[in-house]
């Protein structure tokens, strides 16, 4: 699977969870790797890109989570 496609899947997962459940980085890695049949390292790498691009951010609420930045 292309990296851009993995990034899209991650973004959609985080977007879908907004307001329902805060996702940890490991939740995203587990879910996407199982869904897409790719390694967790590939998911981690795509997630890293999304964070570096500022499309997703880390937040802290008693634990560290990945979320979409506020507009």
């Amino acid at each position: 699977m292309e990296k851009e496609e993995v990034k899209k899947k991650i973004y959609e997962l985080v977007e879908k969870s907004m307001g329902k459940k805060k996702l940890k980085s490991s939740d995203i890695q587990k879910t996407i790797s199982a869904e897409a049949g790719i390694s967790r390292d590939e998911v981690k790498d795509a997630l890293k890109d999304l964070i570096d691009e500022g499309k997703l951010i880390y937040t802290y609420f008693g634990g560290s989570f990945v979320e979409i930045p506020p507009k």
Binding site: S25, I51, D52, G54, I57, Y58, T59, Y60, F61, G62, S64, V66, E67, P69, P70
Partner: peptide, 10 residues
């Protein structure tokens, strides 16, 4: 807590 940090870092 909350939303605070530098780009790329959690």
């Amino acid at each position: 807590g909350g939303i605070v940090g530098v780009r790329g870092y959690g």
